[in-house]
């Protein structure tokens, strides 16, 4: 990966943590990375000043509309990578990039293999970051779910005067009947029983 002449890459990512990862990976490969979070017009100026060989930007950034148009203003401005999707190998790379949320702009005349390897490592960083985040979210929601299910079970046990296993079975079969997630059904049971007992309290008073 020790290329003789490093490429100059402008990196724009609203997520600073992810940007650091991508930046480290690309620098490790010997490239020069400029990190920036400019506004739309600042971006035009930044590209003109720094003359990057390549721009890596997160897919959802509104700055992309600015980058798109730059090539209509200036023939040397980087062009969207999707415009280079001719070879099947490139298509696979770009497909992975679009899926991972990485978009890239490249100036003409850079070797395709070099572009591909840069995109590959950016995609790898984006994907591992996403995997980590999804995992965290899943763990969090799994914990939430368990709390709700436990609470619903307890309420059913009291309400139906049954043991824990029966309560769980009742919850599970009604979830299946309504084709709902267990946690969703549990939440419904909680609302139902709580509003019911509140009603009876009001009636009693």
């Amino acid at each position: 990966m020790n290329s003789p002449d490093p490429l100059r890459i402008l990196l724009i990512d609203k997520d600073p943590e992810r940007a650091s990862q991508v930046c480290a990976a690309l620098r490790h490969e010997g490239h020069e990375v400029i990190r920036q979070r400019p506004d739309a017009t600042g971006l035009t100026a930044a590209v003109a000043r720094d003359q990057p060989d390549m721009v890596i930007i997160d897919m959802d950034s509104p700055d992309r509309d600015t980058l798109e148009n730059m090539s209509t203003l200036n023939a040397h401005a980087p062009r969207p990578i999707v415009f280079f999707a001719n070879e099947p190998g490139d298509r696979a790379t770009i497909h992975a990039a679009v899926k991972a949320g990485v978009s890239a702009y490249v100036v003409d005349g850079i070797q395709p293999e070099r572009v591909r390897s840069i995109i590959d490592s950016a995609v790898a960083q984006f994907e591992s970051f996403q995997a980590l985040r999804t995992e965290l979210e899943e763990t969090r929601s799994a914990l939430e779910d368990r709390k709700i299910i436990e609470k619903a079970k307890g309420l059913i046990m009291r309400h139906e005067q049954c043991d824990e296993e029966t309560a769980y079975r009742m919850l599970r079969s009604s979830a299946m009947e309504h084709s709902e997630r267990l946690a969703v059904m549990a939440e419904r049971v909680i609302t139902l029983i709580e509003s019911h007992s509140q009603g009876s309290v009001q009636k009693a008073s």
């Binding site: 897919m59 959802d60 950034s61 509104p62 992309r64 509309d65 798109e68 999707v82």
Partner: peptide, 16 residues
């Protein structure tokens, strides 16, 4: 929901 027209175009281009 897409943040830019460019990203919408790319996703249509690659069948996402």
């Amino acid at each position: 929901r897409e943040g830019s027209w460019a990203s919408l175009r790319d996703k249509v281009t690659f069948g996402l």
